[in-house]
Design a protein around this nucleic acid. Sequence first.
DNA 1: TCAAAAGTGTTGTGTGTACACCCATGT
DNA 2: ACATGGGTGTACACACAACACTTTTGA
Lengths: 225, 225
Amino acid sequence: MAHQYIYENPSVTVDIVVFTVVGEDLKVALVKRKYAPFRGRWVIPGGFVRANEPLDDAAKRELLEETNVKGIYLEQLYTFGDPKRDPRGRVVTIAYFALINSSNVNLRASSDAAEARWFSVKGLPELGFDHKKIIGYALQRLKYKLEYTTVAFQLLPREFTLTELQLVYEIIFGKTIDKRNFRKKILSLGIVEETGRKTEDVAHRPAQLYRFSRRHMILDNFIRS
Amino acid sequence: MAHQYIYENPSVTVDIVVFTVVGEDLKVALVKRKYAPFRGRWVIPGGFVRANEPLDDAAKRELLEETNVKGIYLEQLYTFGDPKRDPRGRVVTIAYFALINSSNVNLRASSDAAEARWFSVKGLPELGFDHKKIIGYALQRLKYKLEYTTVAFQLLPREFTLTELQLVYEIIFGKTIDKRNFRKKILSLGIVEETGRKTEDVAHRPAQLYRFSRRHMILDNFIRS
DNA sequence: TCAAAAGTGTTGTGTGTACACCCATGT
DNA sequence: ACATGGGTGTACACACAACACTTTTGA
């Protein structure tokens, strides 16, 4: 293992892009850096991988430590290793992509972060490192995943109306969808089941509540912390 | 950067799964290890990322050094970081996925590798590290890419017949395709253009030669070394 | 009774699939 | 002349897109 002695090993970090949908906005979790470099700048949560720690575990741990978020859909996104991406020296980061449902959106800052907040993807602040690029990459993946998989359910509470589900698609694709066609498609796929319950205390006709059918949950590939 | 002093950084490597199609077989490039661990075992080409070297460059360099292969389609596949994946200690590897056309398949072993050879994916030897898993992952990606993109052309010489193109799809998907439907689809997509030339010295009706149309090449996202 | 969102079908268009025979060349 | 792969069209099923009105509740 000659190289270990010739070259200093790079640092290895994980960084996580967490998306949620609140109201009519797609949001990303950001934390404000407490220390240099980029002190005071907003960045996506992340940090160093520990000795003997699997990468997925590191991502879950950092997310919990920096934002108090847990138990969410998480998948590896891409690895960024440009030699100049961190002013401190060579840092290779394995970026993760995460989704959380809008009823669990309480962020809490912690030791390494001065503050933690949700930002609309349409109004991101100036970001540290190459995190703008990473979020851009994650957005692409999100659209892509939504089109070909059933991850949209990760962005909703356990019970939801078809209109709420449709809204998730509309927000992420940035265009309106025909209500009848959307419902026909979703119902024909058999990926949702009625709960029998309805929305309450709404100033209009109450909507049927659905849940993602368990049979499809197990087919979906995901990592849960 | 406290962690740098508390934890020893992992080693960072790149490993490349190179596919090609020869005759009726999908093949992967493997090299035989010259040194421990796994001395004498076959593995996919790869090695340590150098200081100040971008990850993509490291992949291209290792591929050239270990197999004499260059100028091919290359994309990042996935990062494997299980703490036990290398018996020497923590090694995080960024796996790459590469395609090469069958007219450039001369492998040449070099310093770090005792031997370099193409193996049919249907007859792989026992592999070192977690390389069997990495190849499995690459195979999934290959099928997937073939379905949704035009990377199939990377596996063919610049001029090819529609039958050759069809064969690539059949080999990778492992099933036969209707000739008329295949041609209709490919031609309607407008991704190939006639060269005007035909195959020569064949003991049957000569076939029209096509090339991938330049207009689509530039849309295809790829990294060339 | 009004406002507001829920819910519901039909029709045309395009895409994928199944299927069989003649053509051009070398031997 | 024959063997070998090259090359071609039609018909049916299914998925997607466009489109407007009635229903149920709370205020």
